[in-house]
Nucleic acid binder design. Structure first.
Lengths: 240, 240
DNA sequence: CGTGCCAGGTGCCTT
DNA sequence: AAGGCACTTGGCACG
């Protein structure tokens, strides 16, 4: 058997099973590890699924995250979020990795027939990611330069709370009317219009509908959303 | 150097860089592989981010998926969806993995200083996942047994298209009124109420508001959503 | 391909 | 903990 750190992995015609596999996995528990194994997966919680025997990649992080990847796609076929607890147990001659989530109660069981590779990792980066081009970026751009929306606009508040949600940006126009702005960083759809409408009607209750305008600010808008927007007397302002 | 298949991985105090690393990676291109490396990551596309030098886990799938994981969390820190193309190039003495997406145009560059482990995988499962307990399950339950919502209810249509979206289930009640049902598999929030309202008002245009009811069907509802729902004259039916 | 919308969404932040 | 909401949301189905 090869050295345990940082890696345990036999060539492809070799594999570990039963006791030997369990012994390897014991050393991996609580660490960051990548496992390549022939396994069966059962998930039960908010939903429920079952994967038959197959070769899969399993990633376990010390924070409780568990990811089970198959051949295709971005999303893991099954997973468990951070905060879960990982246990190693036995079902007959097979080692079983069981990940448990408390609330909501969810369990994943990975029954391991053959372990083909186990990579135990000692150190992994953890970094703050400063993402650019977000919706918040778009809002602050307008806060600094309200005329991007329209001349004479004056910002009153951002992240303005109401009983039906939070208004991205609240302003007053040249004629003294309240202006509710909802921002989208990408194509705005029906949901965005509905959101804007909720806020506008909320503000209209105190100030009167004629004293409140609603503007959807986005780089683009779907045609159905545009139609719905117009029908509700709301406005669209293109901004990238 | 160890055998290339299915695994290339030095013990932790060993690593590969420059030409040697490039040579290894060349063999991995187009295959399913897991890479543990000291790297820098640049992403630019719909958004933009930059990760400084750090030890990370990188997964590349033959379908073009690229995942870059750090120590914590379920979601990859950076990624590229299926359909992207992966290239291996050189930047000074460093090998660079570049993943390119066409539409929208997005690029990830992974500059590799040290390769600590490379696991090349020959075969991975690909399975149809039949997920249970979905929203569709809830709808078909009601289709089979409409009295779960209310006695005397008659189903007219499911997935009923309108200009403002698709109604989950359309029915008629004992008094001949139209009933628009919007289903949620989990806690219903403000967005769900807005959705239901869109559909109800759409149907009301043809039949008159007094001839149309709207019912939000979900296992639970937030208090703010409940308040908003009541205000709009819509109904809530708890169903698990 | 655009558009709507569900998802075991996840993650972040505020009450 | 509950709730609102953005997200490089991803993924799918349908016009």
């Amino acid at each position: 058997m090869l050295a345990l750190e940082p890696l345990i992995a036999p060539p492809e015609y070799e594999f570990y099973e039963g006791d030997e596999a369990e012994e390897m996995l014991e050393k991996a528990l609580g660490r960051f590890f990548v496992l390549y194994a022939l396994c069966r997966v059962e998930y039960e919680g908010r939903a429920k699924s079952e994967l038959d025997w197959g070769l899969r990649i399993l990633i376990s992080k010390p924070d409780g995250t568990l990811l089970i990847h198959e051949r295709d796609k971005h999303k893991p076929r099954n997973w468990q979020p951070p905060g879960c607890k990982l246990y190693l147990l036995r079902k007959g001659r097979w080692p079983v990795l069981m990940s448990v989530r408390r609330r909501p109660h969810e369990v994943i069981r990975v029954v391991l027939e053959k372990v083909l590779a186990l990579l135990i990792i000692n150190q992994v980066a953890r970094e703050e990611l400063a993402l650019e081009k977000t919706e918040a970026d778009l809002v602050s751009k307008v806060v600094r330069e309200p005329s991007l929306i329209e001349e004479g606009l004056e910002v009153i508040d951002v992240e303005h709370p109401t009983p039906v949600g939070t208004i991205d940006l609240l302003a007053r126009d040249g004629k003294g009317r309240l202006v509710v702005c909802e921002f989208k960083r990408s194509v705005a759809g029906l949901d965005a219009v509905s959101q804007l409408r909720r806020y506008v009607e909320q503000m209209a209750e105190a100030h009167g509908r004629e004293k409140v305008r609603g503007i959807l600010v986005a780089p683009a808008i779907t045609s159905t959303a545009m139609r719905y927007l117009a029908k509700l007397g709301l406005e669209y302002k293109r901004l990238t």
